[in-house]
């Protein structure tokens, strides 16, 4: 039953982060004209698509855990 013992704090953590994120006004809202830095490619979460695909593919064939960042993509016979 160790799995279920783990799950509980997990969902508490989950709830806490969600509340913090969707949360009411963390500081002052960033204005549209202040977003030039945020528009840089390195400030986005997408990154280099092919690099990410290779890296995820390799990790998922060598490690037990995978996923988390998005959905889709083809599988492979390594798993």
């Amino acid at each position: 039953m160790k799995k279920y013992e783990m799950q509980k704090p997990l969902y508490v953590l989950l709830l806490m982060i969600m509340l913090a994120l969707s949360g009411c006004a963390v500081g002052t809202a960033v204005q549209p004209w202040e977003k030039e830095t945020l528009a840089r490619p390195e400030m986005t979460f997408e990154g280099d698509k092919l690099d990410t695909a290779y890296t995820e593919h390799i990790y998922s064939s060598k490690e037990g855990a995978s996923g988390g960042a998005g959905v889709g993509g083809g599988g492979c016979g390594c798993n």
């Binding site: 202040e34 945020l38 979460f45």
Partner: peptide
């Protein structure tokens, strides 16, 4: 979520 003009966070 954009927190400041230099910070962006994501939670999935």
């Amino acid at each position: 979520r954009i927190l400041t003009k230099n910070d962006i966070v994501q939670f999935n």
